[in-house]
Design a binder for these strands. Structure first.
Lengths: 189, 189
DNA sequence: TCCCTATCTTGTCAACGTCAAGATAGAGTG
DNA sequence: CACTCTATCTTGACGTTGACAAGATAGGGA
């Protein structure tokens, strides 16, 4: 998956175990509905063990966001050939990796100056800019088109995650997202 | 503004003072970066005073969300004549009343079964459905068009609030939003 | 064998949300 | 004015939390 810096000491790989526990907890009760001590209990270690790996809560969420942006950039890059599919991939990631997504776009929860995080998020942004540029009617409207396409995908994901969309949308959000995107960007594909 | 149930007892109007303090605190550090005790200190009352009015933290955030949805519905209704302006009003509210907006679309923070809240949020949704319907090319695509338009406005607002958009966007977000919406929905107006 | 260092534990602290019980003061009634 | 009633607010307490400091532990290199 990703580089693993820790050789196994007492626990095995506590860093990963804590992150996994955090992802579970975020899935169950959001990015703030849990405590570091609870994660430590889930991982079977003492209450202060997480602090060694992440410093504090923001440090843990920084690690989650960084990992999320890495996976996010990978996902978008895999779809980069087809502009429509980049949008669908955006929504698919948000829904399929909800705990990551819910942290990633809430920068007050983590430290944005983390170098790995910044690199991954810029990598993801590059795919969006490049692929949306191909939709632009004229070079002068590149920026506007990028923001529009990004807003559409991001808004759909956000509304779906917050449960604001009508129930019928919950059957197959990915197909619905594809329809919505196609509505704007034509059926050229 | 809205009905005020409390007659002034010891404090004057503590309920309002606590909500205002909450809005300030949310503006400064997000919907979870503060404590009830801090709000009580700001209002100059004891640490347990807020509990009487709101029960618990979720109760306070429910009141914030309800008030937000009321104002939101009012804003949208005022713009309902012009479909484009509904989208602009959506963004304007999100940015101009950021602390409300940041709570409203995070339902895990409050109690969605609150009757006043539900009524106001349905009132807002009705404006969106009605006005977006006017954009729909055919009745069969009403639902899709509504979701698309809503996603566009919601996504732009969310991206702007999270600081994800490039800095140039921060000069006049409202004008930028208008351009973005016009890009999709033509310049018929 | 010995030390070094990353890893984890234990103990502690102020602050927090929440609850229970008591104090206070305005409003209504006579 | 005297009295009571009740919404409002205070005080005190309890278990939990994030964070810090100091100590224990164990694997790896010399």
């Amino acid at each position: 998956m990703r580089q693993i810096k820790q050789t196994a000491y007492h626990h095995g790989n506590l860093r990963r175990a804590i992150i996994d526990a955090a992802l579970e907890a975020i899935t169950e009760s959001g990015p703030v509905g849990w405590s570091l001590r609870e994660l430590a209990r889930r991982a079977g270690v003492s209450h202060a063990a997480p602090a060694h790996h992440f410093g504090d809560k923001a440090g843990l969420l920084t690690a989650v966001a960084a990992e999320g942006f890495e996976m996010f950039a990978d996902t978008l890059e895999r779809a980069a050939d087809d502009v429509l599919e980049v949008g669908v991939a955006y929504v698919r990631f948000a829904i399929g990796h909800r705990p990551y997504f819910e942290v990633m776009f809430r920068p007050e929860l983590y430290r944005m100056d983390d170098p790995g995080l910044k690199a991954a998020s810029e990598r993801a942004a590059r795919v969006l800019v490049t692929s949306a540029g191909r939709l632009s009617p004229s070079p002068a409207q590149d920026r506007l088109t990028t923001i529009a396409a990004w807003s559409l995908a991001h808004g759909f994901a956000g509304l779906w995650l917050s449960g604001a969309l009508p129930e019928t949308a919950h059957d197959d959000p990915q197909a619905l997202a594809r329809s919505v995107i196609r509505l704007f960007f034509g059926t050229t594909h």
